[in-house]
Simulated assay, not measured.
Amino acid sequence: MSFLPTEGDAIATALKPAGFPLAAHEPVESDRPSRIIVRMYEPTGFQQRVRAGWFAGLEAAERTNLLEEPVGAAQVRKEGAQFTLSPFRIETIALKVKAPDVDLGPEELGRRVEPGQPVYFAHWQHNMHAEPLGASPIGLSLRGEVRTDTHVPQGGYTINTVHVGLVNNLTTPVAGKVRFVLPEGWRTVPAEVPYRLEPRSSASYPVMLAFESPLRRGAVKAQVEYDGQVYEAVLEVGEPARLSWELRPTRRGAVVTMMSDYPQDVNVDAFVIAPHELWGDLVEGAALAEMPSRYERLVVPAGGKARWHIEAPHEVDAWLTVKLAYHGRVEYRQVRLGPAAQKK
């Protein structure tokens, strides 16, 4: 059974609920939509009489522009909505559909949170994706120029002020607390920042940062939690974190060895980039093999070492690139796999 039965030489390029909730950072209702947008185009260069239906039946249909604003009616019969499609024309149709006569029930179509927690909020610095899962309902930033000399001698402390920025991208109020992860011997005043933001609003909160130890290198990490996901902003103080790492082939794939002289644990998003022949079932007949894992959240301990063993088919002659992203930095290494690499 097809969700969208069609007739005529036209190609359907889009099938979606009506509206643009994600573009406006609006919450998406979980109820089944009653208005479906279908976008089709005519590829042959001849005028076509086209029909578009729906598996549970239609109540009405109308033509719209690309902004989904009505521009005209479409004829609806038992078989579906009928309309004429001019040569090479793109047409957008809004279908008011009937609900199916079966209870489909709620179903999880995928994970609801990112596998690596906390999520580095400035994800664009890690060259990752358009938005984390959840479309960033709360914006988070941490800014300030932190001096590491004792410029305010007050009881032996060095005191600075940083600013936590929050944005509510939702259409409902949001409240919570900003928590901080700090190197040993540092503290913030206040220790936590409670907040309440009205819809589509923002706020900035000053926070005092006090050094109560000689340590002047590390990262101030601000974290907020929303809907099961933790977002994190990082402000480095002193010399930034720089991992020393290498990638080398092994009999069963490759191994990444990372070493750190940083005084705090470093969260690392690690990715494997490989030819599509190693993507397994995702490329069906083109696959030569499949790699078990292409992402891992790694933690390099303070002043310590961590390893990531990447399983890969040793009999396949291929290249493999590893990308490490941490504290707003992205680094790459490449290695050759296969029997030839093992002989070197």
Score class of each variant (00 low, 15 high):
Asp227Phe: 11
Ala203Ser: 05
Thr172Arg: 14
Pro214Gly: 15
Asn168His: 10
Glu246Leu: 11
Leu243Ala: 13
Ser213Phe: 06
Arg248Leu: 06
Leu170Tyr: 01
Val255Cys: 07
Ser202Leu: 01
Arg248Cys: 05
Ser202Ile: 00
Gln229Thr: 02
Gly176Thr: 02
Ile159Arg: 15
Leu247Pro: 08
Val193Cys: 14
Thr188Asp: 13
Leu182Lys: 11
Lys221Met: 07
Arg251Thr: 05
Leu170Asp: 06
Arg187Ile: 04
Thr161Asp: 05
Asp227Lys: 14
Pro206Trp: 00
Tyr231Val: 07
Pro214Asn: 14
Glu184Leu: 14
Ala175Leu: 04
Glu236Trp: 03
Ala222Gly: 14
Val164Trp: 01
Val220Asp: 05
Lys177Leu: 12
Glu239Arg: 04
Ala210Ile: 11
Arg248Phe: 12
Val178Trp: 01
Pro206Gln: 04
Val230His: 06
Leu182Pro: 03
Thr171Ile: 15
Glu225Ala: 03
Ile159Tyr: 13
Arg196Glu: 15
Val167Glu: 06
Pro249Ala: 10
Val237Trp: 14
Arg187Trp: 07
Tyr195His: 11
Trp245Gly: 12
Arg179Gly: 02
Glu184Ile: 14
Gly253Lys: 03
Ala191Lys: 07
Tyr231Phe: 15
Leu243Asp: 13
Arg187Met: 10
Arg216Tyr: 05
Ser201Leu: 12
Arg252Asp: 06
Thr161Phe: 01
Asn168Glu: 07
Asn168Ser: 08
Gly156Trp: 13
Thr171Arg: 12
Arg248Asn: 03
Arg217Ile: 02
Leu182Tyr: 08
Trp186Gly: 02
Asn169Gln: 06
Asp227Ala: 15
Leu209Met: 12
Asn160Phe: 13
Pro206Glu: 06
Gly218Cys: 10
Leu197Gly: 00
Pro173Lys: 10
Thr161Trp: 01
Pro240Gln: 08
Trp245Leu: 10
Ala222Ile: 15
Val164His: 01
Arg217Tyr: 11
Leu215Asn: 13
Val164Asp: 07
Val207Gly: 00
Val234Ile: 04
Gln223Cys: 01
Pro183Lys: 09
Ala191Asp: 13
Arg252Leu: 03
Val234Lys: 06
Val181Asn: 06
Pro194Asp: 09
Pro206Met: 08
Asn169Ile: 01
Ser202Thr: 03
Leu247Met: 13
Leu247Ser: 12
Val189Ile: 01
Phe180Gln: 10
Ala210Asp: 09
Val162Pro: 00
Ala175Arg: 05
Gly228Cys: 14
Tyr205Ser: 02
Val255Asn: 06
Pro240Ile: 00
Leu170Gly: 03
Tyr205Leu: 04
Phe211Asp: 08
Leu247Thr: 10
Glu225Cys: 00
